[in-house]
Every structure is written in C-alpha cells, then in structure tokens.
C-alpha cells in the first residue's frame, strides 16, 4: 500500500507524562517495518488542529500542573472539533488524562467539578486512593479480543454511561474504577485506556488492531502483515506472568 498514515499527536507539550512518546514511536516503527510511512503532526496548546486530515489522533496522559492550560485551550474551539472528529469516526487512542478528557467531567474528591468535552458519555470522580501497578485486561470482540498488559496510575474512578462499552474486562488490577471490572472505553473508533507503560509496544496485537482500524477507514480491505514480535511478546508475557501467575495454565 503506497499510502501514508497521518497521525495527529494532540498536546505533546502537556500530555506526555508516562512514556507517551513510546506509543508514537511504536506506531511509526510498526508501520515502517511494513513499508508504510507515518506522518506525525504535533498539535501543542495554542496550535490549530486539522483533525479532518488525520487518520489517527493520539492523546497521552499528563499532570495536574498544566491542566488549566489544557482546559482553556480546549475551550478555544478544539473541544468541538475533537468531538466532531470522533462522531465522524476518526480513530482515536486516548490514555489516562487524555482518556478522561473525552468524557463529561472530572469531579475531585472534595467536590470541585471540571467540565470536559462530552464526546463520550462517561464521567470521572477523584478518590483519595490511587489505583496503581501493573495490570492486565482482555479487549472486547470489537477491539480485537487480545490481552493487554500495562501500568495504571490514577486516582480518578471512571464510570461509563449506560450503553457505553468498556475497552476490555479486567484480568488483574483495577481498571476504570476497581468496582465493575471494566477498563477503558470503546466508542465508534475511539480506544480509551488507563494503561500507560506505554500501552502499544508490548501489546502488538492491540497496536495492529488500532492501526488497521485507522487504515481501513480509507482502505476498507487493507490488512497488516504479521511481524516478528518475539521481543514484544516476551515483554508482554513477562508482565502477564507477574500479575497473573497462573496465566499460562489457564491459557490466557
């Protein structure tokens, strides 16, 4: 396929806390190994976004210090544009803070509410305890069905609206809220997750599913060829063994 995948990296200046660069690097390399170019456009705060000309939008996780900057930039119009792009079926990968941002709001544990872009019906409530550590979940059928391993570190508990599907079901760890067994969100072509680590390099099946989703919006019959994933799977399996010591026996 002589095409280029256009990746829009939203807020690389604000949302870059947990190795988010690794997700970009991973997508770029896995495409390059198959002879596909990736064109990465960074859209920092203050810059104009051109979501219509992107095949995939990536949003990482950040810290509270810069949150005001982020919210005021969203309000300058990016919120509506991003929402429209999502409704339009753009492929989006959103991690941690970037994931929360797509919902309705974040309410801190002492009751301060921060409005988000309302692209997907869910909300997040801060808790005093952090959900932190290596974790694993199995993606739903619409997300490729692979087992994803990563590291979660969030105090926000996310609750999905009725009819909104999680990205997967927790095998070990907390996920969205530590209560309902769901992790992340899956809506149209949006993949939202609390998994940093970063998520893509050691979950090659998930990464390829994401890339394929993005490519297929322009080339519906396109399939990615398999790669030599020995290093990737070794890293994946090592984490899975540490969080689920019986994983091999039970065939996960």
């Amino acid at each position: 396929m002589s095409t280029t995948l256009r990746i829009c990296h939203l807020y690389p200046d604000l949302l870059n806390l947990y190795g988010d660069r690794g997700n970009i690097l991973c997508m770029k390399q896995r495409l390059a190994w198959r002879g596909i170019d990736a064109e990465i456009t960074e859209v920092p705060a203050g810059a104009k976004a051109d979501f219509a000309n992107a095949d995939l939008i990536f949003i990482g996780g950040g810290q509270d210090f810069e949150q005001e900057v982020l919210l005021s930039d969203l309000k300058s119009g990016k919120d509506k544009e991003l929402k429209a792009a999502i409704q339009d079926g753009k492929t989006v990968l959103a991690i941690c803070g970037g994931y929360q941002m797509l919902g309705n709001y974040y309410e801190t544990w002492d009751g301060v509410r921060c409005d988000f872009i309302e692209a997907i019906d869910f909300y997040t409530v801060g808790s005093r305890e952090r959900m932190i550590g290596n974790f694993a979940f199995r993606c739903g059928e619409h997300s490729g069905g692979s087992v994803v391993v990563g590291f979660e570190n969030h105090s926000g508990k996310t609750y999905l609206g009725s009819g909104v599907e999680p990205l997967g079901r927790i095998l070990a760890g907390s996920g969205n809220n530590g209560e309902d067994g769901g992790e992340g969100v899956r809506y149209r072509n949006v993949f939202g997750s609390y998994s940093h680590g970063p998520i893509l390099p050691k979950n090659p099946s998930f990464c390829d599913f994401l890339l394929q989703t993005a490519i297929q919006t322009r080339h519906p019959d396109f399939c990615l060829e398999p790669l030599d994933d020995r290093f990737e799977l070794a890293a994946h399996d090592a984490v899975l063994r540490s969080v689920l010591p019986d994983s091999e026996k039970s065939g996960i």
Partner: peptide, 9 residues
C-alpha cells in the same frame, strides 16, 4: 520506582 514507563521517554 514500580512504573518503568520512563524508559520510553
């Protein structure tokens, strides 16, 4: 540090 994501940065 239990989070090794920094190696990607």
């Amino acid at each position: 540090g239990t989070d090794i994501s920094w190696i990607w940065d």
